[in-house]
Design a protein around this nucleic acid. Sequence first.
DNA 1: ATCAAAGTTTGCCATATGGCGAACTAATTC
DNA 2: GAATTAGTTCGCCATATGGCAAACTTTGAT
Lengths: 112, 112
Amino acid sequence: MANFDHRLNLAFAALADPTRRAIVARLCSGDATVGELARPFEIGLPTLLKHIRVLESGGLVSSEKSGRVRTCSLTPGALLGADDWLRAHIATWESRLDRLEAHLARKKKDVT
Amino acid sequence: MANFDHRLNLAFAALADPTRRAIVARLCSGDATVGELARPFEIGLPTLLKHIRVLESGGLVSSEKSGRVRTCSLTPGALLGADDWLRAHIATWESRLDRLEAHLARKKKDVT
DNA sequence: ATCAAAGTTTGCCATATGGCGAACTAATTC
DNA sequence: GAATTAGTTCGCCATATGGCAAACTTTGAT
């Protein structure tokens, strides 16, 4: 429970940065090396590496080094977890709206 | 574009804190005052107020003061925006998986 | 008029974040 | 084996975050 919480903390925090979201977006369409990930952005390798570590600690990305090249891939679990949280709460909100609407409709009927 | 990005930054950042997620969860089932929101948590009012400001700047919550009471309500737009981003990228990931699978299936057929 | 209630502002702290350049390591390539 | 490439680590910085206590400001109640 506090565990899920913590995973969500890290996942949402990881997604709160545009560079990291771009990395996730890039990895959605296929694995990439650190260098390939760095190229489109105007940031240094050390900084990008930090981002990757943040993404890894958030469970969004995993990477493995073979030779001198590190290849990163998307781990969809955390994305799904974050999405689950959002959808559950959006659903709660909407069902509450529905009840409210029904309530108003009933009231209107009473008055009319 | 950079605008959407910024909104997403703030929304995801707002969701990266468990106290704030709990506030959002609470507000899903109805409006609440600052005091009501603070009660379940073991944090001071000033801290809670900061959280509310973060949620407001992320577009997740809006609040209005009448008399000496400030009432907070959920603004679902930012939740939906974050959810849209997640779902779009999950979809991209899955369609890529599908293509990969199809590719493998084709290959297997060729070999067999 | 006074007192209590509900926020709010103001400082203050410790920690974390995103960025950099410089130096270092380990694998290829020539 | 020398040079290059691809990461990596190491300080260092400025800013932001989450927390608190204390003082202040309205409003509402008596």
